[in-house]
Simulated assay, not measured.
Amino acid sequence: MVDGPEELSDRERAAVEAELRTLADDEFVVAERYTEWQVRGPTLEADIAIANIAQDELGHARLWYDLLEDFGYDQVDLIWERDPADFRHATLVELPFEDGDWADCVVRGYLYDTHEHLRLQALEDSAYAPIADRVGKVKGEETYHREHTQNWLERLAESRAGRERIQRAVDRLFPHALTLFERTDHEETIVDTDVRPEPLADLRAEWREVVSGFLAGLGVDVPVEDAAELLPDSRGRDGTHTEAWRSLYDEFTFTYRQLGRSEAPSLMPAPEEADVDV
C-alpha cells in the first residue's frame, strides 16, 4: 500500500492522477447535469431524489478532487480555470437531456451508476491507500442512486409507451456510456501498479452483462455490436468532447468569470472539515 504522493515514482504519480481525474470529472459533470432536473421531475419525490443525488455526486467529486490537491493542485486549477479540453469525463455525463424526457434521465443514471458500482468495487483493492480509504464513503450513496434508477425504469416499463421511451434513451445513450470505459494514456500503469487492479476492458464486459440482463428483463434491447463499432467520435477520456460540453463549461464557470475571481469558495467542505460523511 502507498500512503501518499511522496511515495510514488513519476510514472506512478501520473497514473494515480489520471485515475483521480476521471473519477472526479465524471462526478462533477454528472452532478451539473442532474441539477437541471431538480424542479422538473414527474413527481415531488423525484425532484427531491434527483436534488439529493446531485448533491451526493458533488460530494464525491470533492472527495476525489481533494486527493488531487495532495499533488499540488487547488480547485481553481482543477475546475474553474481549467481548460475545458483538459477534463477527462466520459461524454455520457456531458450530453444534454432530451427535453422533458424523464426516461432519458433515469436511463443515463442507470448506465452511469452501474459502471460506478463496478469501478468502486475494483478500487476497494487499490494499492493507493487514499483511494481505497474513500471508496466506502461513496459506495453506500451510489447503491441508493442505482436502486433509484432501477425502480424508476421498472415503473416506466410497466406500459408500452414507457418501454418505448426507455428504448429511445438506450439507443441514444448507450454508445456514449461506452466512453466510461475508454482508456487514458496511463491505463497500463494504473493496472500494473494496482492503482485499479481490474482493467477497464474487464469492467466493461461485466457492465455490459449486467445492464443487458436488467434491460432485457424490462423488454428493452441493448446494442450487440462491439464497442469499437458503437463508440462516438468524441471519447471524453482523451480530451475530445461533444459540442454540448463547451456550453455546459461556460455555464458553470459563468459567475466565477463575471466576478473576476482568482480563487473560488470550496466546492464542498473538505472531508476532515465536514460534520458528517460527504
Rank of each mutant, 00 (worst) to 15 (best):
M1E: 04
Q75E: 14
L173I: 02
E198D: 03
R165S: 12
Y112M: 01
L20V: 02
Y256G: 09
P265V: 02
H117Y: 14
L230G: 07
P265M: 12
F254G: 02
A169G: 15
D233S: 11
S234K: 01
R33L: 06
Q75T: 01
Y256T: 09
E182N: 02
F97W: 13
A264Q: 08
P223N: 14
L178F: 06
D3E: 12
Q150Y: 01
Q38I: 15
Q55V: 13
G213N: 10
G140V: 07
L153D: 02
L156F: 11
E182S: 06
Y73C: 02
G100M: 07
F87E: 02
I48S: 08
E273Y: 05
S212N: 10
T35C: 02
I190T: 05
T189H: 09
L111R: 05
I190A: 07
L20D: 04
G41Y: 09
E6S: 13
F174D: 01
Y249G: 06
G136F: 03
Q150C: 00
E263T: 10
A24G: 04
A274D: 09
Y249R: 11
L203F: 09
P96G: 01
L259Q: 15
E6V: 07
T240W: 05
Y249M: 03
R13Q: 06
G219I: 07
G260D: 07
W80Q: 06
L173Y: 04
E263R: 15
L118I: 04
V138D: 08
D133H: 12
A18V: 08
E263F: 00
T179D: 15
A85V: 10
S126F: 12
T179H: 14
R246A: 08
R40N: 14
D70R: 14
A103F: 01
H148W: 14
V138S: 13
K137Y: 12
A90T: 03
P269Q: 13
A90V: 01
L259P: 00
S262H: 14
P269L: 13
Y128A: 12
A31C: 14
V39D: 06
Y256N: 06
F174I: 03
G162R: 05
V195R: 08
A129I: 04
D250C: 00
F181T: 01
V278C: 03
P232G: 03
G217W: 11
D125V: 00
P197E: 03
S234Q: 15
G100S: 08
T242C: 10
D185Q: 11
L231S: 09
D238P: 00
D10P: 07
R21K: 14
R257Q: 11
D238G: 07
V76A: 13
E206N: 07
R165Y: 05
L23M: 12
P197M: 06
T184L: 05
T91D: 05
A228H: 12
G236R: 02
G260C: 09
